[in-house]
């Protein structure tokens, strides 16, 4: 059987003092839909080890990251190979009205880090990414360049970008092109 292929398999990572860009492939990703006030929501939180964050535009971290993506929707990011997670969540809230969908290959993750990361993203993201406004623990679904993305602020200058797989090649090329001037330093 041939190797698995990630959407940015051909992407040459950027590794400079000022800026790092690399794909984090094959994360386990689940889309979770549930009424946040329901018992099922609490049970899912227990099963994840991370309560579902209810403040819009934030994420919670534990063994996995749980990103708020809507008032009854979350995106769970777990390490590659967490195949059993979907089943465990279904079991935890058996019989309740929930939507749990494996979307692992729907998007891929790109990590952007380094002192110029905000300058890089500012070329194509209309959100205010100043640390006063969009610090660690914040996430947003928005548009970067011409692609819809989920953006999460990590510690320091790091950002995680989740982009639809079909757009990943475009966004990778766009990031590389935009990065050129930020590598000069």
């Amino acid at each position: 059987m041939a190797e698995r292929l990630s959407p940015l398999a051909g992407f040459e990572p950027v590794s400079a003092e000022s800026l790092r860009i690399e794909e984090i492939p094959f994360l386990t990703q689940l889309d979770v839909r549930v009424d946040p006030k329901s018992r099922a929501a609490a049970e899912i939180g227990l099963a994840l080890g991370v309560p579902l964050p209810t403040e819009p535009g934030t994420y919670a971290s534990g063994d996995c990251d749980v990103l708020w993506t809507g008032p009854d929707e979350w995106l769970v990011l777990a390490p590659p190979g967490a195949e059993g997670l979907e089943g465990r969540l279904r079991e935890a809230c058996a019989g309740a009205h929930v939507g749990i969908t494996d979307v692992s290959a729907q998007r891929t993750a790109v990590l952007v880090d380094g002192p110029r990361s905000r300058d890089l993203l500012a070329h194509g993201c209309a959100l205010d990414l100043h640390p006063r406004v969009f610090g660690p623990g914040r996430c947003a679904q928005t548009v970067l360049a011409r692609a819809q993305v989920v953006l999460a602020a990590r510690e320091g200058d790091a950002f995680m970008i989740l982009v639809r797989s079909s757009f990943a090649g475009y966004l990778g090329a766009w990031l590389l092109d935009a990065a050129a001037e930020h590598l000069l330093d």
Partner: peptide
């Protein structure tokens, strides 16, 4: 570019709507 107040996400550029 209008800022449209999404009741969940807060004000965002109209191009997102």
């Amino acid at each position: 570019m209008l800022l449209i107040p999404c009741p969940w996400c807060g004000p965002r550029d109209e191009a997102e709507f």
